[in-house]
């Protein structure tokens, strides 16, 4: 079963990370799922692949009533992001899934109907979670051509999907980045190869630099907090991406 760690709380406003499954087979990439809850409602961010649904569901249940989930947010269309959709819809057929308009007709191959999807336009949109305004921030081509991150201005938390992701060695189970220089080595190859556009990267760095961010939460690896957030943005800005060897 995965572990849950609440890393932000202000009364009924919480951010919970669902991380590190010791029973996960090695052939599955490790993923982080995040729950934002506000006044009893929850939004699950990048709910994960079908194979890890039992682990995510059980971990979530330990922290939050899954029946109080009011939506799913998929940063993009990859299987490790949203192939569990059919299972979440088995649990609650009315659960909406927020996703880039670009993928609204692709993701139904994993499950769901036309009513399931709330298509996010390219410029992004506000998502209201029972009174909490969350902002879908464009991150197109980082890495998917239709890609969004989710910003919570009140908590100063940015869910950054694959941006900031690090493929950490086994047994690296810290929730937060402890040593930026050591950590970023595990992120470099991933970003060089997965992130497809230097222009898109520069635009994203400029966009998020204007946001007030205390924690930057990627879908793989550890969370950047405090000064490491700016360190990461500067590092990413200077990295040449879209590079394949061979």
């Amino acid at each position: 079963m995965k572990a849950t760690q609440c890393f932000y709380q202000d009364g009924e406003h919480k951010w919970v990370a669902i991380v590190r499954d010791p029973a996960r087979p090695d052939c599955l990439i490790d993923t982080n799922e995040y729950l934002v809850s506000y006044n009893g409602s929850g939004l699950l961010l990048d709910p994960g692949g079908a194979e890890i649904f039992p682990a995510v569901f059980s971990a979530l249940s330990a922290e939050f009533d899954p029946a109080a989930l009011t939506g799913l947010f998929a940063s993009h269309q990859d299987p490790d992001i949203i192939s569990s959709l059919a299972l979440w819809l088995e649990f609650n057929p009315k659960l909406p899934c927020y996703v880039s308009w670009l993928w609204a007709s692709f993701i139904p191959h994993f499950g769901g109907s036309a009513e399931t999807f709330v298509a996010i336009p390219d410029e992004g949109m506000e998502i209201n979670l029972n009174g909490l305004n969350l902002q879908a921030i464009p991150a197109h081509y980082l890495h998917a051509s239709g890609n969004f991150h989710l910003y919570d201005a009140k908590a100063k938390v940015l869910f950054s999907g694959d941006v900031g992701a690090a493929l950490l060695p086994a047994k690296s189970d810290n929730l937060f980045v402890e040593n930026f220089d050591a950590h970023i080595r595990h992120a470099e190859a991933f970003h060089r190869r997965w992130m497809g556009s230097n222009e898109a990267k520069r635009a994203w760095c400029e966009r998020v630099s204007r946001l007030n961010i205390d924690m930057l939460c990627p879908q793989h690896g550890a969370i950047y907090q405090g000064a490491d957030v700016e360190r990461f943005i500067n590092w990413f800005d200077g990295l040449r991406v879209g590079v394949a060897v061979g």
């Binding site: 079908a50 194979e51 039992p54 059980s58 299972l87």
Partner: peptide, 8 residues
Amino acid sequence: LLNRAQEE
């Protein structure tokens, strides 16, 4: 998968 979720 639902059975596993239920069990876990």
